[in-house]
């Protein structure tokens, strides 16, 4: 983990409430797709955790949905403004278990962390399949970006206004060697049931610190209590214990 000051390079809307922010700064601590950064938002006490959508030497891309005061404040930042970030948080996805045909399943604002993952996997010569799930046509984002990487991309919408009608689990390819997913809890549960083999699930939870100190985000697993911020956010299929 590192603390650093980042400069907003660009901040623009992708849909009505999903924004893309590019930031310049020291990205050395960011080592794996699926990790997140924790951002000090002017006027708020707690930092806001946002997953890394893309990362290159000195430049970081975050794609976030405006859901409350924190993300609303982020969307109002303009080029040149500075932000205090904790970077390199969380375990990230394990790329070693991908096999030759990894399947990436993203739902809504769970799509962004899969982009950098898809980039790494396609660069490693893997045949990557991606299924992106949204509620309706107007909410679709990042589809072209995944295609540009050379991934095989399918889109689902709940109302059927674009792509396949239904959820990501309604557009699963027949063959794949591993599953990487991020999205709302009901989607993660559905993916867990509908897929097989090595699988990695990224969880979301309200966090205090984001670096393992406050125990605010702990979840029970088959392998004991795990802090989503530090021991996660990515959990393996074998360790997940669904509650309720």
């Amino acid at each position: 983990m590192k603390q650093g000051i980042f400069t907003v390079l660009q901040n623009r809307p992708l849909t009505a409430d999903v924004w893309e922010m590019r930031l310049g700064g020291d990205t050395d601590a960011i080592t794996a797709p699926g990790q997140f950064v924790n951002i000090t938002v002017p006027g708020l006490f707690l930092r806001r955790p946002i997953s890394v959508c893309d990362c290159e030497e000195g430049e970081l891309t975050l794609v976030y949905k405006v859901v409350g005061k924190g993300t609303d404040a982020l969307s109002r930042l303009t080029e040149g403004e500075e932000l205090d970030l904790l970077t390199g948080l969380g375990n990230g996805y394990d790329l070693m278990a991908a096999g030759e045909n990894p399947l990436l399943l993203g739902g809504g604002v769970g799509v962004p962390p899969l982009y950098w993952l898809a980039k790494k996997l396609t660069n490693a010569g893997k045949q990557v399949s991606v299924v992106l799930g949204f509620n309706r046509r107007e909410e679709v984002f990042c589809e072209e970006a995944f295609r540009a990487l050379g991934a095989k991309v399918a889109v689902t919408t709940v109302d059927g206004s674009y792509g396949t009608r239904g959820f990501v689990t309604d557009a699963l390819p027949r063959d794949y060697t591993s599953v990487y997913t991020c999205g709302p809890l009901p989607m993660l549960k559905a993916v867990y049931k509908a897929t097989r083999g090595p699988a990695f699930f990224s969880f979301e939870e309200r966090m205090g610190c984001g670096f393992g100190a406050c125990m605010g985000c702990t979840q029970r697993t088959k392998e004991g209590y795990k802090r989503i911020c530090k021991d996660g956010p990515v959990l393996r299929r074998e360790e997940i214990l669904w509650e309720d």
């Binding site: 708020l44 006490f45 707690l46 005061k69 924190g70 939870e205 309200r206 966090m207 205090g208 406050c214 125990m215 605010g216 985000c217 702990t218 979840q219």
Partner: peptide, 16 residues
């Protein structure tokens, strides 16, 4: 059970 953290004006709530 979570959520057990919340924002507050100039502070935070915890119910760890």
């Amino acid at each position: 059970p979570t959520p057990r953290i919340a924002e507050a004006p100039s502070g935070m709530l915890n119910a760890v």
